[in-house]
Design a protein around this nucleic acid. Structure first.
Lengths: 224, 224
DNA sequence: GAGCGATGTTACCCCTTTGTTACCTTTTGC
DNA sequence: GCAAAAGGTAACAAAGGGGTAACATCGCTC
């Protein structure tokens, strides 16, 4: 049973969200201002947070940043009033995972929440297998035909992100955000470079990669 | 072409809504009581539903709940008589996506409908099918009879735009704006050229295209 | 503080993509 | 039936995306 925390000050909206997610079988907690919401999150955690930006006492950005700074990594979906680019970017910078602009469809929101929880669960998987390789997340080791391949920490993070999102087209920006962290700015070419070295270690023929495919003008896609 | 179902018992209002949405280019069906409306929705579906709450035979809440229980996820916008908090909450609880309180501006309602349809389509459609081809938007891949067709990024963008707007006549100008971006200036012949190469990849007989039809003096139309 | 490994940046090169031009075919208007 | 315009498409040219080697920098260990 997943626990969802809703931080939203509009009573009608809060109520509607709460009821809908309870109907979907989730355990739901709700807070009506930033302070209460942040306290709850830091105190008892949650599996996912729905976070309004405009909130009394502490705004959504601040909450998001604080939660991340304290080391929590649950998915955070921001509820923004308008599709204002700058709001969205700022939210993502602060560590939010997704945003939904009001008015939004409750079905759409539920679908996104499900997707995040599914993926986050996948993020708990202990071992991934692909080709003749294994990634063991307990020991942070990668094996190929039973022999260990030495990966640097960035290579490991990149491979892990690829495996969690295998089959999906991933932009360099999203790779950067998830592997390098949204606060750190690196060139997109750094991603390329890291991909090259990773290919050199896990691909049989790095020049004709079987797993890490390039999608021109987009980024990369990992195929198991 | 989107199909909108209007369930509203006030004849004048129903008529007004119907005319307005037809003018906007939608296909519109209307029902005057809850039973007829629900039957229609479950029987033939719709892309979006405008739903009055106070209705003869079956009320709006009940309709909404039944539609969701049957697994339909089209956007439902409730038309509530007053901005009564409790009505709104109840509507959202039952799975409505948005509500508009009477009296409302028709422009505002049309805008919301458009926003919902756009987002619903974009957010929900992960896969498009046409002929014996599939476009998978998660992986940015196109398949034909299960085999991958390699599309360049422009071809992919063009095909995606065609699919989102299938059945509509699209001018070269609008194709350019959406696929190339409004900032970049290219010759209209570039669109033609891209269409040709795309036809070569997805059409069985590129010289007698089944999907990408030319409309002389206008542009192109995609037929699924 | 020297040495070393990891990682970011830059630069260079290759190759695909893509815009343009030109020529040909088809359609349209007279 | 002919001229003019629209669209198909082959050919060429130019741009630029991405692989990757080389270099710079940072942080750690001894």
């Amino acid at each position: 049973m997943h626990r969802i925390l809703i931080i939203e000050d509009d009573p009608a909206l809060q109520r509607g969200l709460k009821d809908n997610f309870i109907d979907e079988g989730y355990e739901v907690e709700a807070a009506s201002d930033g302070e209460a919401g942040l306290d709850y999150a830091l105190d008892r955690g949650a599996d996912l947070i729905l976070l309004d930006i405009m909130l009394p006492k502490i705004n959504g950005y601040e909450i998001c940043r604080t939660i991340r700074r304290e080391g929590y990594d649950m998915p955070i979906i921001m509820l923004t009033a308008k599709g204002q680019e700058s709001d969205i970017i700022r939210g993502l910078e602060m560590g939010a995972d997704d945003y939904v602009t009001k008015p939004f469809g409750i079905r759409e929101l539920i679908a996104r929440v499900k997707a995040f929880l599914r993926r986050h669960k996948l993020a708990d998987t202990e071992q991934f297998e692909f080709g003749n390789c294994t990634l063991d997340r307990q020991s942070c080791c990668c094996f190929r035909n039973g022999e260990e391949i030495k990966l640097t920490s960035k290579e490991y993070g990149l491979l892990e992100y690829f495996l969690i999102n295998s089959g999906k087209a991933l932009t360099r920006a999203s790779i950067m955000n998830h592997v390098w962290g949204s606060s750190i700015m690196v060139t997109q070419r750094s991603v390329d470079r890291c991909v090259t070295t990773l290919r050199g270690k896990i691909e049989a023929e790095p020049s004709q990669p079987r797993h890490i495919k390039t999608i021109r003008d987009v980024g990369y896609r990992f195929e198991i």
